[in-house]
Simulated scan of single mutants.
Amino acid sequence: MGVPIELSLIIVIAAVVLIGAGIGVAFLLRGRKTKPGTYTSPRDENDPAPTGGATATDAAESDVVAPPVPVAEAEAPEAAAEPATRIEVPEPALGRLARLRARLVKSNNALGKGLLVLLSQDKIDDDVWDDIEETLLLADLGTDATTELVDSLRERVKIEGHRDAEGVRSMLREELTKLIDPSMDRSVASDRRGDRPAVVMVVGVNGVGKTTTIGKMARVLVAEDKDVLLGAADTFRAAAAEQLQTWGARVGVPTVRSDVDGADPASVAYEAVKAGIDQEVDVVMVDTAGRLQNKVGLMDELGKIKRVIEKQAEVDEVLLVLDATTGQNGLNQAKVFSEVVNVTGIVLTKLDGTAKGGIVVAIQRRLGVPVKLVGLGEGADDLAPFVVEDFVDALLEN
C-alpha cells in the first residue's frame, strides 16, 4: 500500500526544516568562540572550578582571602567602546615635559624666585639668611635639608661673592640640583622580567587621585610603545572600576575587573597579574582603594594584596601617590605606607599653583626613594617623568 502523496510532502518538508535548523545551530555554535585573553562568563556556585589551576585562595596560603570572585577582563577597547569612540594617541614624553615646565614657570613659585631676590641683595647679613631659611621652611623643604642648603649657600657666597643675577642663579641651580639628587633612579618598572610582566602597585590615601593617575600613567607607557594591562583592585569605591576601564579604553589598554561589588581586592589583583602573564604584556598596573594611613585594618589589607600577588609574580614597583599641597602631612602618609608595602617611588600631583616645591626634597629625604612622576594639571596628558634639572630650571625661571 503506497504512502499518500500528501503525507509524503509533509515528511519531505519536515526533513528540510530539521536539516536547516541543524545547520543553523552548528553555525551559531561555531561562532561562539571565547576571545583569546578574555574570561568566560562567571560560574555559579554549583559549577565547580576546573582542577589543576591555581586560584587566588590557593595562592594566599596563610593569608585569609575570600573565595575567588567572578573576574572578567574588559573586552578589547575597539569592541567595548561606542562605535564613535576612537583610540587616542597619547602625547610623547618630550612634549609633556616642555608643557609642564612652562606651566610650572607660570605658577606661584615662591621657592626659587624668593631665593633669587634674597641672594641678589648688595648686603647679605644675618637677617637675610634668616629670611632665606624661612623661605625654605615655608616651601616644605624640611629642617635638615634647609640647614644643609643654607650652610652650603653661606659658604659659597663667602668664597665666591656672587652678586649678579646670573651668578646667583647658577649657584642656586647647582645647590638645588645637588639637594634633589639627580643620581637617584627615577625610571618606572615597565619592561618584562624574563617570562613575566613588570608588576606595579599604586597606593595612597583617599582623594589623591590614584585611579586618574593610573589612567594617565597608562598613557605615558603607551606613548613609549609599552603593552599595558590594568587591574581594578579598588573594589570599594563606587564606579572605580568603570573609571579605570574608561581611561584604559581611550588608549587601547584592557582592564581586569570584578563583576561583584565589594569583591576581595586581593583576588582581583591576583587575577589581573595572572592575565598579564598569560597575555605576555609588558607591565601590569594594579589600582588599590584609598585608605587613611592610621587605619590599621585597611593597611593590613594592603599588605595582603601585595603578598597574594607575589605568590605568582614579584611586585617590582610600589608607587605612592601624594598631593603636593598636603605638605608635611604627606610625609606622615609616606612613612606609614612605606613600612607596609615598601614604597619604591613617589607620584607627586597638583604641583602647579603651589609654593610647596620643597616637598620633593623632603619626601626623598624621609623615605630614601625618588619622586618619579609629577602632575601639574587636570588634562589627560598632564603627567610626566620627573627630571631634576628641568624642575630646578623651572623653579629659577623668571
Rank of each mutant, 00 (worst) to 15 (best):
M1C: 05
M1P: 05
V3D: 15
L7G: 12
S8W: 12
I11P: 05
I13V: 15
L18P: 04
G20P: 14
G22P: 07
V25K: 14
R30E: 15
G31Q: 13
G31E: 14
T34A: 08
K35H: 07
T40I: 13
N46K: 12
D47K: 15
P48N: 01
P48W: 01
P50A: 11
G53P: 12
T55D: 05
A59M: 11
A66T: 02
A66W: 04
P68C: 11
V71E: 12
A74N: 13
A74Q: 08
E78G: 14
A81G: 15
E82R: 12
P83I: 14
E88R: 06
V89M: 01
E91K: 07
A93N: 10
G95R: 04
R96I: 03
R99C: 08
S107M: 04
N109V: 06
A110E: 14
K113T: 15
K113H: 05
Q121R: 07
I124G: 12
D126W: 11
D127Y: 13
D127C: 08
V128N: 08
D130G: 06
D130T: 09
I132N: 06
E133A: 13
E133T: 11
E133G: 02
E134V: 04
T146Q: 08
R156G: 14
G167F: 01
L172A: 01
L172H: 11
K178C: 03
K178F: 02
L179I: 03
D181Q: 01
D181T: 08
P182V: 09
P182S: 12
S187M: 06
R192L: 06
G194H: 15
A198Q: 06
A198N: 00
V199N: 00
V202Q: 05
V203P: 07
G204P: 06
N206M: 11
G207S: 07
T211C: 05
T212N: 14
G215C: 10
A223L: 10
K226W: 08
D227F: 09
L229P: 13
L230N: 04
A233T: 00
T235C: 09
A238F: 08
Q243M: 10
G248E: 03
G248H: 13
G248R: 09
D259Y: 00
D264K: 15
V268Y: 00
V273M: 14
V273Y: 05
G276H: 02
E280C: 06
V281K: 01
D282F: 03
V283K: 05
M285C: 09
Q293S: 13
V296S: 12
M299F: 03
D300A: 14
E301I: 07
K306T: 10
D316F: 00
D316G: 03
L319W: 05
L319M: 07
L322F: 08
D323V: 00
D323Y: 00
A324M: 00
T326I: 10
N329W: 01
N332S: 11
A334Y: 13
K335Y: 01
E339T: 04
N342S: 08
V343E: 02
T344G: 09
L348N: 06
G353I: 14
T354G: 09
K356R: 10
I359D: 12
V361L: 07
A362I: 12
I363M: 10
I363E: 09
Q364D: 06
P370K: 07
V371M: 02
G377N: 11
F386G: 02
D390P: 00
F391H: 06
A394V: 11
L395A: 07
L396E: 00
